[in-house]
Design a protein around this nucleic acid. Structure first.
Lengths: 193, 193
DNA sequence: GTCTATAAATTGATAGAC
DNA sequence: GTCTATCAATTTATAGAC
């Protein structure tokens, strides 16, 4: 599909393809040439939309972070018992992951090599701190086991959520079903006894 | 520390530093120059120990995979109720992660860009299949909830284990305590009610 | 919005001395 | 086991035309 049959790219469309290629080959493993090939345009055309390869990464992780932080400010995350708020944040995070999969995937793979990446890591830590406070409160309320370290529990909870990017694909089945199983595993537990 | 004060490198020592740098900067984000800088020797000296950058990655992920597969063949993974075998594999995998952290971390970040990487991904899938069989058996035995998909449960279980590489550091506390919390979160569940 | 052409720097790897 | 010097290829990015 060349430029005569395909609608010319705008920034959003370029970003969409870029995120996909970055995920498939790794950000550093992707050259502007790879990107140009995937887009079907020349390398230099990419620079019409964005000033650098790093800016593409910045836009992508920003989109993921915005979606995740939005979850923390929703009604379900701010009202009611802390335990229910934890479940709400877990379920909605899975939905964000489903909806913004390629951008969240990219965010979770950032290593801190550049200022852009270090900024993203700092915002992820802030998200983590806010969820940890919820878990701590749920323990204090007596609704979650309080013999465990809330920071460690939060890391494991979001470790489980974030691990979805390694295999989850939106078309393979509902995010709802995955969220149900995730809650079953983490909050309810797998044991029958 | 230069060559006159430091013992000359052997392959194992080079591999050790390489895995660290690969994890810090990403494999593709690490140049042979970066590696040489971290080792304190020249680029060309690295080629005395290993024929290519990719061979370093291959040796590193091999080490991680060997350690993980060894767990599956231990007595605790082959005897007794399937539910206990699942717990054993989980706990021992955390121990492997603790002992071989840098190599497991590298393994989990492989994207499949080269033949070496695709080989590693295939061996990871084989590990996953073998654990899934254990989980399925534990469900059939009535020891784990059987209303959930065993493959999905296994992915979530090992998603949780594997997420440790994102933050766990051996000196920060016992792998034992982490494994206990992980089992508490996944098998027992967090809820008090 | 896209192109060709090209610059300037960096990359993975080799040759050959010590 | 390590070095300096160097190569060929690739990389990110720019210039300027359409």
């Amino acid at each position: 599909m060349d430029a005569t049959t395909r609608r010319p790219y705008d920034l959003a469309a370029v970003l969409d393809v870029a995120a996909e290629v970055f995920n498939a080959r790794g950000y550093d493993g992707t050259s502007m040439g790879d990107l140009a090939g995937a887009l079907g345009i020349s390398k230099s055309s990419i620079y019409h939309h964005v000033p650098s390869k790093e800016a593409l990464l910045g836009l992508a992780v920003d989109r993921a972070l915005s979606a995740l932080f939005a979850v923390l400010d929703e009604p379900g995350s701010t009202d009611g018992p802390a335990r229910d708020r934890v479940e709400h944040v877990l379920r909605r995070s899975v939905e964000v992951l489903d909806r913004e999969l390629k951008f969240v995937t990219l965010l979770l793979r950032v290593r801190g090599n550049t200022a852009t990446e270090r900024d993203a890591l700092a915002r992820r830590r802030e998200f983590d701190r806010r969820v940890t406070a919820l878990v701590r409160q749920a323990m204090a309320d007596g609704d979650l086991r309080d013999d465990l370290d809330p920071a460690l529990v939060t890391r494991l909870l979001f470790g489980t959520v974030n691990s979805l990017v390694e295999w989850y694909r939106p078309d393979e089945g509902g995010a709802q079903a995955v969220a149900d199983t995730l809650v079953a595993v983490t909050l309810e537990g797998l044991e029958t006894g």
